[in-house]
Design a protein around this nucleic acid. Structure first.
Lengths: 196, 196, 196, 196
DNA sequence: AATGAATGAGCCTTCATTCAT
DNA sequence: AATGAATGAAGGCTCATTCAT
């Protein structure tokens, strides 16, 4: 039983517990006790490491963003050309890590909470901007500037839209279908350009 | 002098107060006192008319759905052909009544809350199904069955996506841009069919 | 059992409970539960009427000051001349209402708490200023300006000093002794002027 | 390398930290963490050396009393006659070491806390008795027994009174004025005896 | 029809204190 | 000699809800 160097382990456990608690409850209204209980520690310890509840929530959100960012970088690194860059971005957003019920629910919840939390809104804006620029690095070479912008905007909305709809459905996430529909949309927009 | 016939007025005032409170707070965490205060009555009266808080929330959601339904019916009634039926559906979802910050925030909030409220989920499913079938009455005549289904699904996701993104932005809603992007998407899908 | 118009009764009961709780505990660390319990209501009701704990404490302090002010005005109203005005001020400060263990303890506690509460300090300053000016209306006619000022200052300190010492002693307050000593001091100062 | 002989240093550092913490906060509500932090050690160490929080507080009070006692002895040792012994006692109580904001605040706080701590009360009684007897060694030779007693009592109250008033004022302590007023009081009492 | 009065339940948070290392 | 880890206990505060009027 190591009694030293516990901090990073506890922090991680608490963040994981937060995600799963929020995901299951589908609400930021989870109590600190609930979270701490899931992490196997006392509520006091959660405060010890994170300060107030809001701080734990923010840390959790940052964790989610960081994870997504890591996945994205990895996927983009292996994409050979512009078109496959775009697909990589889409794919990552619906990857098993991201598109599982708990995480989706947590994301959604944060989206809503962001409406009255400047800090959360700031974090989400960063994510939105990054998603946009990642899409643009691919689309920018396939479509005229202005059209690429609009397509990126729609693609981002589409992804968010599938997240929302995912949250309302029971059963396993149908990532395959979501990816197919987004790709279909992209194909339509890109081909439309090429062919007429 | 006991006032008579106050019930419908109070109910309506309370529902309106609920929408604006939720919209402003951006959260279902509004208190009964807050809502009652906005409606100019005591919290006790809200309970008198609606029972528990959850009941008031459900009634509010039903009200939102009913309003959207009314708008939709009105718009569809004047649509001359299949293509314009589709556009009518899109237009209504971004109409000034629907796409204003308060209402958008309320919708979003309900979406999230639906994750742990069977009743709310049931109501949202009804809405989703209606949206889908309304889109299909138009798309079904413009595209092959299967493709129409997929397009309807994507369109619905796109609309939801713009709602989410609207909630994160400050300033006035840009309904025009949202409509334009959705129409662009529809055009690409429909033209793609026609031309190649 | 009157169920209406309870507010003033509850407020008063809560303030009285606060005084006695603080007096008995000898510390501002009394809990809201303790106070509410003494007043025969739930802690929630205390919050309902006073807001936060600090607000109840401030209200209590204001009550103490108001009571002292009332007693003072009454005593001064019947004082025929300058010398008896001064004695009246002294007498009131050691009157049975003021100089009882509970009240003394509450005063002391507030004094200490004032060190880190601007609002409490503000209230105590008002009291100090009033005590000073009340003493001056009498002393001003018996001694030269400057000497009157100094005597008022010392008298006030002397009164406070007896309060402190009272708080440390057990048994009944010996108001008579305190008054006698203050009067002795005053006599010495005033006679000193007259005779040499 | 385990450090040896740290105990007395830590104890002293912790007591000093306690005084300054209480003085600054103006309340016994300082936390062990706050105190330990100021002393540059962990809260656990404070417990290690002093046991419970109350023990540290008592030790601190004893330290304050011991310091005052040392100052007093030193001052009395150089006082040539009875009158100057009295002045020495007064002077020491308002010496820069004693009459600085932090120490005054700590004293006051202990006074109040003594109301519900037998141990603290015991300590304060010792101080009060010593102050009284020190004053009496001087006054006893200048005034008749009974009058000397009463004067000692008033003088002690006056000193405490100036301490209280000091705590409510901002800015630097005006020890000079306090001493002058106490001396004025003593002069009045002693001269009154001599002259009439 | 409407509300003031009142409360139980629950949550966040703080803090002294202990223990293994 | 010293501390990081951890918690139980307790307090302030909020809020939905009930009830008598």
């Amino acid at each position: 039983m190591p009694k030293v160097g516990m901090e990073p382990l506890r922090r991680r456990a608490l963040i994981d517990a937060t995600i799963s608690a929020i995901g299951e409850r589908g609400s930021l209204d989870v109590t600190m006790s609930e979270i701490a209980g899931r992490a196997g520690v006392s509520p006091a310890l959660a405060h010890h490491y994170f300060g107030a509840k809001g701080d734990l929530l923010h840390a959790t959100m940052r964790h989610l963003l960081a994870e997504l960012g890591r996945d994205l970088r990895a996927a983009l690194a292996t994409a050979p050309d512009a078109r496959s860059r775009v697909s990589a971005v889409v794919r990552v957003n619906f990857s098993p890590t991201q598109f599982q019920p708990e995480t989706v629910a947590a994301w959604l919840t944060f989206y809503v909470a962001a409406q009255h939390s400047p800090e959360l809104r700031r974090l989400l804006r960063i994510y939105a901007r990054r998603l946009h620029s990642n899409l643009m690095t691919g689309l920018g070479r396939l479509l005229p500037r202005n059209e690429a912008e609009r397509t990126a905007e729609s693609t981002a909305a589409l992804i968010d839209g599938f997240y929302i709809r995912r949250a309302l459905r029971d059963g396993p996430p149908d990532a395959g279908n979501a990816i197919a529909l987004v790709e279909e949309f992209l194909a339509a927009r890109i081909n439309q350009r090429k062919q007429p």
